[in-house]
Design a protein around this nucleic acid. Structure first.
Length: 425
RNA sequence: GGAGAGGUGGCAGAGCGGUUGAAUGCGGCGGUCUUGAAAACCGUUUUUCGAUUGCAUCGGAACGGGGGUUCGAAUCCCUCCCUCUCCGCCA
């Protein structure tokens, strides 16, 4: 959520920021309601001040045994006026709120202005795309031949778009999760979290999934709970409605979760195999920090996520998203895209975002500054570290042999317990 | 699922219709004392909206959320949420 006070003070800046994010301009309307709200508040407060004062007097008179009928009647009238104003004020506030909660975050000054993904900028390429002297298969052909992935039966069990890992495939999936969690915990010093996979409406609002992205989430009707699309949601909401002492910051958490996405409206787009599924596994990194440090931490977070791919020796590139491609809550975002030679393209395995105080304001996550004891909103950041399906795609396709077997990267072998898939039966 | 108890400031815990934004204790911060520390003593210690707009000052709001009764609500009523205890069921 944006700060209405800041919008009021610098409308031009926010107008430009919202335009850069392709967000319809409702600022004029918002500011009109804001002015009206303040006027209304002033009127109401004045009347309430009178009521408070006179009500005190009535109390005193009654205690002294004096009649107070006249003042009571007078205050009854004042009370009615207050009711009218309060009702109007509530309407106005609803209008303001409706606009405000639907406005996206505005981009950071370092973000390139652009319309679509075509305007994104590749800022880094790591590793070499391996060369092969045999015809390559893509991950789905490999996996089905090896019997480690079974979409047909998954469809029988759950429907289209759900992965079913079997045998060594299931073990490899589990190995990836454990490897990543251990890595972030032991090497990067993140605190490990195992969050709930369903969250309340409030939590989904806090991180910005609601109200705009409601149709992307699965909802459990009876309980009004949402299946999480990412661990970001429960983990960020751990500190909802809290005031954190500054000396406890930054907080850095890593969490595994299953992630559930309806992927509504994306039929036909990149749906082969594991590239887009309704349920997947992801290890997430979440930071809470002071505003001064958040952009430095953003770079750090990117590095932490990248390192996973480096250790697995998988080639990737880092893309800085342009303003128009940023998600609702993000002020700045890097995508990490991994090279998959069998498919001949890059797949996004991580999104590393700085939300500044956008989520913190929605979720009311604050900190108390040591210097002056004042409270202010924290900055939240998160990044995938990383999501498994597309990592699996890249891994299978990069590590394939002419025989169609898979060589497990060194770093993973102690987690899988085997060094190759498809050799011995 | 059934029965009961309860949600008040950083924590503990009073208050149950008017001078209570909230006693008291603990903790925190500042000070006195001390070579230093402890103890003791004194002071201080929520957030938020708005108005004149630097600090400051004045006013409004907030005792789980929402609604109601009343001149006046932490206190009464309704409703929702949450926590705890016991019973049942269950991984």
């Amino acid at each position: 959520m944006l700060d209405i006070k800041l919008i009021r003070n610098e409308p031009q800046k926010y107008r430009q920021g919202l335009e850069a994010k392709n967000a319809g301009d409702r600022l004029a309307e918002l500011l009109k309601w804001d002015a009206e709200r303040r006027q209304c508040t002033a009127q109401g407060d004045e009347l309430k001040a009178i009521r408070n004062r006179v009500s005190d007097e009535i109390g005193q008179m009654k205690r002294n045994g004096q009649p107070a009928e006249e003042k009571v009647l007078e205050m009854k009238k004042v009370g009615q006026k207050i009711d009218t104003i309060d009702k109007k004020l509530k309407d106005i506030e609803n209008q303001i709120n409706e606009i405000l909660i639907a406005l996206p975050n505005i981009p950071h000054s370092s973000v390139k202005i652009g319309k679509t993904a075509a305007d994104n900028v590749t800022v880094k390429e790591w590793g070499r795309q391996p060369e092969f002297d045999f015809p390559l298969k893509d991950h789905l052909d490999l996996a089905e031949a090896l019997g480690i992935l079974d979409f047909k039966r998954a469809a029988k069990v759950s429907g289209a778009g759900f992965p079913l890992y079997t045998g060594d495939g299931a073990t490899l999936e589990r190995a990836l999760i454990n490897f990543m969690l251990d890595f972030h915990r032991n090497k990067h010093g993140y605190k490990e979290i195992f969050p709930p996979f369903m969250v309340s409406r409030e939590s989904a609002f806090g991180t910005g999934q609601l109200p705009k992205l409601a149709e992307d989430m699965y909802r459990v009707d009876e309980e009004d709970l949402f299946l999480i699309p990412t661990a970001e949601v429960p983990v960020t909401n751990i500190h909802r409605n809290e005031i954190l002492p500054e000396d406890t910051l930054p907080l850095k958490y890593t969490a595994y979760s299953a992630c559930f996405r309806r992927e509504a409206g994306s039929y036909g787009k990149e749906t082969r195999g594991l590239s887009r599924v309704h349920q997947f596994n992801k290890v997430e990194l979440v930071w809470f920090t002071t505003p001064e440090n958040s952009y430095q931490i953003h770079e750090q977070l990117l590095q932490d996520a990248e390192e996973i791919l480096q250790v697995l020796n998988l080639s990737y590139r880092v893309v800085a998203l342009c303003s128009g491609d940023l998600s609702f809550a993000a002020a700045k975002c890097y995508d990490i895209e991994i090279w998959a030679p069998g498919s001949g393209k890059y797949f996004e395995v991580s999104s590393v975002s700085n939300f500044e105080d956008f989520q913190a304001r929605r979720a009311n996550i604050r900190y108390r500054r040591t210097s002056d004891n004042k409270v202010d909103f924290v900055h939240t950041l998160n990044g995938s570290g990383v999501a498994t399906p597309r990592l699996m795609i890249a891994l299978l396709e990069n590590c394939q042999t002419p025989e169609g077997t898979i060589i497990i990267p060194q770093a993973l072998q102690k987690y899988t317990g085997f060094s190759q898939i498809g050799t011995q039966k």
